[in-house]
Design a protein around this nucleic acid. Structure first.
Lengths: 187, 187
DNA sequence: CAACAAACGGATAGCTCATCCGGATGTGCT
DNA sequence: AGCACATCCGGATGAGCTATCCGTTTGTTG
C-alpha cells in the first residue's frame, strides 16, 4: 500500500480531530457535518471513511489498543483473581469515559478489520483471564467465560442511563462492578 | 375527552396491532411503514401517535402495567429478600422477552404521560423493595437503591448483545441476575 | 516543468420523517 | 330520512440526512 499523499494525510488527521471532538461532547457523528466542520468536501470524508462506523472505530482504536495491551499483560500476573478484576475495571472505565468505546465494543457490525481483530482479542482476553481465575478456584462456576464482555457492556450501559457527568460515572461504574464481582467471587 | 369516533378507534387498533407485530419480529418501527402495512394514510398514523416513541410506549403499556402491579403486590410479601428477587426476575424477563419494554424502560425521553407515570412507579418500586430488603439486613449497603432499575436494564442490554433466540435469552438473563444478586446479598 | 496518479469538492439522487389541508365520513339533531 | 357539523382521513409535499459520482485541482516523480 503506497503511502498517503501529504494533503490526504493532513485531511485524514483533521477529520479524526473533528470527529474526536464531536464524540467527546456527545454530538451525534454525521459525516457531512464532520466535512463541514473540517472545512472539507463531503467526498473527501467519505473516501477516507466509507461509513460513520469506520470513523468511529478509528477514533476508538488507541483506547482499544491500550486496553488489549493491558489484558495481555494481565495474563502473566501473579494473582489470577486480581488480574481479572483490574482488567474488568479498566474495561468499564474505558467504556464509561469514552463514548466511542461503548459503541465500538458493543456493536456487532464490523467496519474495519483491525478493530474487529482487537474486539476479538478483547473477547478472548476476557475469557482467558476468567478461565485462569476459575481454574485457580476464585470464581463461581455458574458463570460462563463468554459472559464477561457483555456484562461489562451492560454495566457501561446502566451507568449511561444515569446520565451523570464523567467523574460520577466512573464512581458509579466501580460500584456496579464491585457488586457484580462480589457475586462472581467464590465465597 | 370525548370518545373516539368508530373509524378512528378501528384505525387505532389496526396501528397498534401492526406495530406489535413489527416490534415482535424485530423490524425497526417506522410510522410511514406502519401506515402502509395497516392500509392507512401516513397522516392518520401521525395523528394517533405524534412520534415513534409514543407508539412504542402504547405497545409496551400492558406489560408495564403487569410489572408494576406485581411490584405493588411484592411490597406486602413476607420475605423482603425473596420479594425483591422475584420482582427483579420479572423485570429482566419482561425486558428480555419484549423488545418494546427494553426501549421504553431505558428511554429517558417521555412521550406519553401515562407511561412516564408507570416508569416512575417502577423506579419507586425498585427503590422501595430494595430498601425493605436492606432494612431487614439482607443486602450489602454499598449499593444504592437508585441503582436497581438501571442495573436491570444493563442486564437486559448485555443479554441482547448475545443475540440469541428468546428462550436462551431468558436463561442467560437469569444467570446474569443470579450472579448480581449473589453480589447483592449480605453474606 | 511536464505528465500522470491521487485526491478534492460539491451537485445531486435516494431515502426517511413529519406536516398540512382539501376532501371524505361518522354523528347527532330534527 | 336528511341535514349540518365536527371529526377524521389520505397522500402530496418539503425538509433533512446519506452516500455517490465525476469534472477539477493538487501533489509527486523523473
Amino acid at each position: 500500500m503506497t503511502p498517503l499523499r501529504k494533503d490526504a494525510a493532513r485531511n485524514f488527521d483533521r477529520i479524526v480531530a473533528v470527529a474526536r471532538e464531536l464524540v467527546d461532547q456527545g454530538t451525534p457523528l454525521q459525516l457531512n457535518d464532520v466535512a463541514r466542520r473540517a472545512g472539507l468536501g463531503v467526498g473527501t470524508v467519505y473516501r477516507h471513511f466509507a461509513t460513520t462506523e469506520a470513523l468511529l472505530e478509528t477514533i476508538a482504536t488507541p483506547c482499544l489498543e491500550t486496553l488489549t495491551a493491558h489484558g495481555h499483560h494481565a495474563l502473566t500476573a501473579d494473582n489470577p483473581w486480581h488480574a481479572l478484576r483490574t482488567f474488568l475495571e479498566r474495561t468499564v472505565e474505558a467504556q464509561v469515559t469514552d463514548p466511542a468505546m461503548v459503541k465500538v465494543v458493543a456493536s456487532t457490525t464490523d467496519a474495519l478489520p483491525h478493530t474487529t481483530e482487537l474486539k476479538h482479542q478483547l473477547q478472548a482476553l476476557g475469557k482467558a483471564l476468567f478461565a485462569r481465575a476459575r481454574d485457580a478456584g476464585h470464581v463461581r462456576t455458574t458463570v460462563h467465560d463468554g459472559d464477561i464482555v457483555p456484562l461489562m457492556c451492560g454495566i457501561a450501559y446502566a451507568v449511561h442511563l444515569h446520565g451523570h457527568p464523567t467523574h460520577d460515572r466512573v464512581t458509579t461504574a466501580h460500584r456496579y462492578l464491585d457488586t457484580l464481582l462480589e457475586g462472581l467471587h467464590a465465597s
